[in-house]
């Protein structure tokens, strides 16, 4: 019984316990707090599995930004929460949900506990062509070269999610200002944090983006950190969320997917296929795409947290 096994076993049990608690606990706000803790523990588990890229994403997006969105949602739903708690789904629906969840869990457990022998792996292939791409981090190579199509679609989905949030606006408020994130009285210590942290956070975000070419990191993680700094400044009342109809907002949220798509289509002409990179230009192109994607991701995530526009911009 090694210490590492004890640590991993304890971590696994803790993850399951926190997950169960955040489902079972009553009020939505407590459930969200449980969810955020769950995400951070899950990130630790990914670190223990040596998947640092996944851990960074889980901590930044799964726990951080999603947590902020859920907290905002829980705060907004609070007035109606008592009423909706009385509504419970029928026994049939609950039984079906439970059966489906158990089935999915069992199938996943089966896949993990009894893998095919030898377990299917593309890891050697992913590592074999890194030199041609000039990228040192195999995860970045997978995301932006081998499976670039998935990454492109993922960014489009993110854009669609933002459109979904915006479409909750009333007609008269379309293109207007989201609700200010700061309560009427700004908290002194929060304002101090929002002044101290962004210089450090922006540096870390840009570093995580840049280092993604050779080590764990990349556009999504860097973008999430930049978004967090923006959200912090909005919560502290130092910045107001921008009107969603502003030209720079529309340009910032679309420039990443647009550049990605242009590079992809250019692949038809030069190397001969959608999303394929010309010889020798792969690394500069990948970095250029990552930089604009980071900008778009940061702005989209910040606007997702800011919520739908609620009043016309003056």
């Amino acid at each position: 019984m090694s210490a590492a096994l004890l640590l991993d076993g304890g971590l696994a049990l803790l993850v399951v316990a926190v997950a169960l608690r955040s489902i079972a606990v009553g009020p939505a706000f407590a459930a969200v707090v449980g969810f955020v803790a769950f995400g951070l523990l899950l990130a630790l588990a990914w670190v223990r599995l040596a998947a640092v890229d996944v851990a960074l994403t889980e901590a930044a997006i799964g726990s951080g930004v999603t947590g902020a969105v859920l907290i905002a949602a829980a705060a907004r739903l609070r007035p109606t929460e008592a009423g909706s708690a009385a509504e419970r789904p029928g026994p049939g629906l609950r039984a079906a949900t439970a059966a489906l969840s158990v089935l999915v869990s069992l199938a996943l457990a089966g896949l993990v506990l009894f893998p095919a022998d030898p377990a299917p792996s593309l890891a050697p292939d992913a590592g074999a062509h890194l030199a041609a791409l000039g990228v040192g981090n195999p995860v970045t190579a997978v995301l932006l070269a081998y499976r670039a199509m998935d990454t492109l679609l993922e960014k489009v989905v993110l854009l669609l999610a933002l459109l979904g949030v915006w479409s909750l606006a009333q007609d008269t408020a379309w293109g207007g200002l989201p609700r200010p994130q700061c309560p009427s009285r700004a908290e002194g210590s929060l304002v101090l944090l929002a002044r101290l942290l962004p210089p450090v956070g922006i540096l870390v975000g840009v570093y995580v983006l840049w280092v993604g070419a050779v080590a764990p990191g990349g556009a999504f993680q860097g973008g999430a950190i930049l978004a967090a700094m923006w959200i912090l400044a909005m919560i502290a009342g130092l910045l107001d969320p921008p009107a969603t109809g502003r030209r720079w907002v529309r340009r910032a949220v679309t420039v990443g997917p647009a550049v990605f798509m242009v590079v992809g289509v250019a692949g038809f002409a030069l190397p001969g296929g959608f999303l394929s990179y010309p010889e020798g230009l792969a690394k500069p192109l990948i970095i250029a795409v990552e930089v604009v994607l980071t900008l778009s991701i940061a702005v989209i995530l910040g606007l997702l947290v800011a919520g739908p526009p609620e009043r016309k911009s003056p």
Partner: peptide, 24 residues
């Protein structure tokens, strides 16, 4: 960084407790 974040969050929670009773 943990110090700065911890101190801020502690202030915020304490303020929330003082204004809203014992809190959730």
């Amino acid at each position: 960084l943990a110090q700065v974040a911890g101190a801020t969050v502690t202030q915020l929670i304490a303020r929330a407790v003082r204004h809203g009773g014992s809190g959730p």
